[in-house]
Amino acid sequence: MSSRYSWGADEHLVVQITEDMSLESNFKAMAMASDLASQQVDGLTDICPANASLLVRFDPDRIAPAEVERIVREAEGRLEGGGPQVLETRIFELPVWYNDPYTNETGARFRDRHQTPDKTDLEFAAQENNLPSVEAFIEAHSGAPWITSMVGFVAGLPFLFQMVPQERQLEVPKYVRPRTDTPKQTIGYGGCFTAIYSVRGAGGYQMFGLTPVPIFDPTQELPDFTDFMFFFRPGDIVKFRRIDEAEYNQIKEQVEAGEYRIRQRPVTFDLAEYEKDPDAYNARLLEVLYGN
């Protein structure tokens, strides 16, 4: 299926790779973005890979739109040439306190906007996926790793897509009407995506838990943020690790003392190898993360 190119008036080119979400489409968006970024083309101001599309923002006073299209189509053509589909990225761990009282309390305040006012977000999510319990849902959510398929909506907010075959993807509708409040660092879910709320604010995703680890530090005082105020980049692979209240509080104290470091390792992601056997490939990724 061929991509659809469209102009966002005189400053944007949008490439819709596919209408549906898949790891293959996302991989293509990230690979095209990385190819374009490496060329350092004057006048391309923003190169933004999204879940199954690519947005390029340009300054038409510096580069003609036709030239932008030519360069982007060439990048797409190189990918279709059948070269190796690998992504140099990193894998890291985020601890999550699932089913915590803070997001549950927030959810309780907005039950009138939810599909099932008599159930929690997690109970609803388990039911929607034909899973026997909240436990089973959390098991599935924290089992296989996730790839950062897009960063956006607001500053530093990652969209994450789970690295499992489509028949094992968790799917949960968003709230019927959005909430006006979501705690900072909430693990949210909408459609087939996990999102982590980088800031407190409105939101329509189901709420499953909290991470004690900031993913956005505008003061850049925390040790993982000295280079850049946002932690997540497109292509990052993340593994959620389930923690309890005691460990949540312990990590929160370490964060506040400026001592917590996110466990992370560089890794090469190979799409073809992954597709041969996703579970075995994921196990190898986790060995990289948790090996010495």
Partner: peptide, 21 residues
Amino acid sequence: QPFGAGSDPSNITDAGYPVGS
């Protein structure tokens, strides 16, 4: 609706928004 796009016909698989869109 395509996989990942949400249930309303005005929904798409989340994508970048051009400024001015």
